[in-house]
Amino acid sequence: MVLNDKRLRFIVGHYASGKTEFSINYAIKLVEMGKKVALVDLDVVNLYFRSREKKEFLEKLGIKVIASSVNASAVDIPAISAEVFTPMQDTSYEAVIDVGGDPDGARALGRYKDYIVEGDYDMFYVLNANRPETQTAEKAVEYLRKIEDTARARVTGLINNTHMLKSTTVEDVLKGQEVALEVSKMTNIPIKYISVIEKIAKDLPDNLEGEVFPITLYMREDWMI
């Protein structure tokens, strides 16, 4: 249950793991529950498929979107708005922080180390076992530890987000679940969520570790596969 998570939720993972889709869906879930929500786009590495691209849509839903201080969606300037501090300091917000992919992207968290106090935040590691760099537990753990080192914060939960976009099958999700279970055993970090497109969520077994979290692909336009 999202309300059982810490107020500050940092979403990290390998590039193209699906962090942004999960972050957006998570923020929407919170606002649907009547919460005051801020979605922070802390990605200063990737120019595409960033949560800031859906700012107008999200703000119509009542979500405060905080992103680059440069008002352009694809300008290669690693600028972060000072507004990022707002949801970290203002405890009236439920905050979802979409962090850049890979260890390089996670480095941006280092500047907020005074606000990342162990026990006061959750950092969720999004795992897509269909990505070559994280298709085994050993590789996934190696990435996880590198992200922790550069972010100067510890992962508190795993998200199985193994997918093939709109072509995702139950078999994809279950394959990823096996990898996530191995990662969990190796790190002693629990599986928090199984992120899966809505059309197949109902077909998953009901005994999986972690909460099934149906998502909509907001970052994929209708014509995209």
Results as ranks from 00 to 15, higher is better:
T91N: 03
S92I: 06
Y93E: 09
V96Y: 07
V96L: 06
I97T: 11
V99N: 05
G101H: 10
P103Y: 13
P103I: 08
A106V: 03
A108S: 15
G110R: 13
G110M: 09
D114S: 15
I116E: 04
V117G: 03
G119M: 07
G119K: 07
D120I: 04
D120L: 13
Y121H: 08
Y121I: 07
D122E: 00
F124A: 12
Y125T: 05
L127F: 12
L127S: 11
A129Y: 01
N130S: 08
P132S: 04
P132M: 06
P132N: 05
P132I: 05
Q135N: 08
Q135C: 02
T136G: 11
A137T: 06
A137M: 09
K139H: 06
K139M: 14
K139L: 15
K139D: 07
K139Q: 14
A140K: 00
V141P: 02
E142K: 14
E142N: 14
Y143S: 15
K146A: 12
E148F: 01
T150G: 04
R154V: 01
V155A: 14
V155K: 10
G157K: 12
I159N: 07
I159A: 10
N160V: 01
N161S: 10
H163R: 03
M164Y: 12
L165N: 14
K166M: 08
K166P: 05
S167I: 02
S167G: 05
T168C: 04
V170G: 11
D172G: 09
V173E: 04
L174E: 11
L174P: 05
L174R: 11
K175A: 02
V179N: 00
A180L: 10
L181G: 04
E182Q: 00
K185S: 06
M186T: 00
M186Q: 01
M186F: 00
P190S: 08
P190N: 13
I194K: 12
V196T: 14
V196W: 14
I200H: 06
I200G: 05
A201S: 15
L204C: 02
L204V: 00
N207L: 06
N207D: 15
N207I: 06
L208F: 03
E209W: 02
G210A: 11
E211F: 06
F213Y: 15
P214L: 12
I215Q: 00
I215S: 00
T216Y: 11
T216K: 15
L217W: 01
L217I: 03
R220V: 08
